[in-house]
Design a protein around this nucleic acid. Structure first.
Lengths: 329, 329
DNA sequence: TTGTATGCGTTATCAT
DNA sequence: ATGATAACGCATACAA
């Protein structure tokens, strides 16, 4: 009879099964053990309802079956979706997820990186913004949307292609003069390629375009002012707008309606990310959908891939356009 | 010089500082140590960039500074928000969060409960659906929205009051004949009180009402059919609808528009939860806002409150109404 | 007040 | 193939 509250240990199991401690360990770790012994041990485990102590295991083996996931927050729907699929991918491989919300705070981001040295996780998957983030080469790290170094895999959607598809789609839907709008131009990350892809697409399809690139810290009201400045004779200069994120598209739509324009009749809008208010329901705007599930799966795949001679530095996963009410059907 | 890859231990620090192992431990745990020793140890820690090994610490002390958070998913915006604030509350107290997405799967939920016995977490906060969930009395557990037993604190928004406020508000905005709609009536949980509160509010304010209660597994199209069945002479029988969640309200709005009605001119809509598409931006519908931040804080407070003689069985936190475009201003 | 020694539950090495 | 035994890194009771 054990002391109430303290869980049974391997020792208890060994005692109960009348075998040596090492034998129990082997059974648990799937190492070869003769049938009758295995059965005795399994019976004892069942009887005592034994569970391995993860801390003893972690201490001894230096493996924790836990991956840290760094993300600014879980309230942005794109991040929420990413978190969800990351969790599914990890769970499928019997890994646990330590959720680290960074609020895009550089210091916090750096602090969390030390978790792995702290022996608290086996690896890190991070969507980070710290421009000078330092990640040790020996740390299993996979970055989302930002190349940190040639030794650290970066997983992203094919942002360039996404921008190009947006231009192509707007052209196809009858637009002639379009605009591109984004915030966050201060950081060199993969999503910045949306702009280049879009420009390229415009050239390819004979669209003329203008751009508005705001800083992270600028007031979104500047979007409104830009739009207003492009109204003359109650007509908007653009017939199509590509926004770097669905969040921007969502805002722009509101502003356009305030200015008395109809979306998509007067001006068509395409965002980027593939955000929905509720899962299963409609997209909040017509959009370039990121393959969130594949991104998550790929991140997990690589972070767990300990001994790969040479890890790919950048992986771009295909995106697709989806209708969401802000373009003509 | 340490072997590359393995982190420095207390022993290394003791050696470096030329003190005994125990002294280092005391410095780290803030126990009284004479000034000169403390300084030597702190210098050594700094120099070696020492970090305590969480697994050794966990093994020895049976405390892990980690709380498991059980939630169906992080894609539902209400859950996402809850996850976010839970994370903030835990981080503030230097606790880490193990995210466990259950997909509302009863077996998964039960599995995760064993984490605490497995010595992997110090406690569990869970929003669960398993009707027969078994939680050991010795397990620090806090439940959200469902009373599991008198010994397990349940934290919820004041659902009854919320329903009542919805009725009151609809009355105030000129409604006379209203409806209540919800899914998920199969489980006895706190949110079910929204209905009772609403009925009570209707009686108080002289509103007549009808109800549509769907099972979890019924097709949402039934909402549409119900609405359609209440149209005659191109007029809807109701001038106001209270939906048990914002998600339902969001759906209903779409259905109403498909039927040719205008929201809020022809019929006003109030949901429950306080969901926004993007943080900072507008609510997706007029709604009863849950105090997510307070709920999170309260959960953390109680799950960490080890030795409280008698834990309160149910805590209801105040809600408030917020305008979100589906009611008259 | 400081140092020493023991054990937490596992895994892995080594005789048997 | 199996069983005894030595770490893993830390905390703590106890001795100095």
């Amino acid at each position: 009879m054990r002391k109430k509250g303290s869980a049974p240990t391997m020792k208890d199991v060994a005692l109960e099964a009348d075998v040596a401690l090492g034998t129990v360990s082997k059974v648990i770790n799937g190492l070869p053990v003769r049938e009758p012994y295995r059965l005795k041990v399994e019976a004892a485990i069942e009887k005592l309802n034994y569970q391995v102590n993860a801390y003893a295991q972690g201490l001894r083996s230096n493996r924790t079956n836990t991956i840290a996931f760094l993300i600014p927050n879980t309230t942005n729907p794109f991040f929420a979706q990413l978190t969800h699929h990351m969790n599914l991918s990890l769970t499928r491989r019997h890994y646990r997820m330590l959720l680290c919300c960074t609020e895009a705070n550089p210091d916090l981001e750096q602090d969390y990186i030390s978790l792995v040295k702290n022996n608290q996780v086996d690896g890190i998957i991070g969507l980070t913004y710290n421009p000078t983030l330092h990640v040790d080469e020996s740390t299993p790290f996979v970055s989302i949307d930002r190349s940190l170094s040639p030794h650290i895999p970066c997983i992203a959607s094919d942002n360039f292609a996404g921008g190009q598809i947006a231009a192509e789609k707007l052209s196809e839907l009858g637009c002639r003069h379009v605009a591109f709008m984004r915030t966050g131009s201060s950081l060199t990350n993969e999503p910045n390629k949306r702009k280049a892809g879009f420009e390229n697409g415009c050239l390819l399809h004979g669209l003329t375009y203008e751009m508005l690139l705001l800083n992270d810290d600028s007031d979104p009201i500047e979007f409104y002012q830009f739009l207003k400045a492009h109204v003359s004779d109650e007509k908007l200069a653009f017939d199509g707008i590509f926004c770097a994120t669905d969040m921007i598209a969502f805002r722009i739509k509101t502003y356009l309606e305030q200015l008395g324009f109809h979306v998509p009749e007067d001006v068509q809008l395409i965002g980027y990310d593939g955000v929905r208010v509720f899962p299963e329901l409609d997209y909040v705007c017509s959009t370039i959908v990121q393959p969130v599930e594949d991104i998550a799966e790929m991140c997990v795949e690589f972070v767990l891939q300990e001994n790969m001679a040479t890890k790919p530095p950048l992986i771009c996963l295909p995106v697709h356009y989806a209708y969401g009410g802000t373009t003509k059907a």
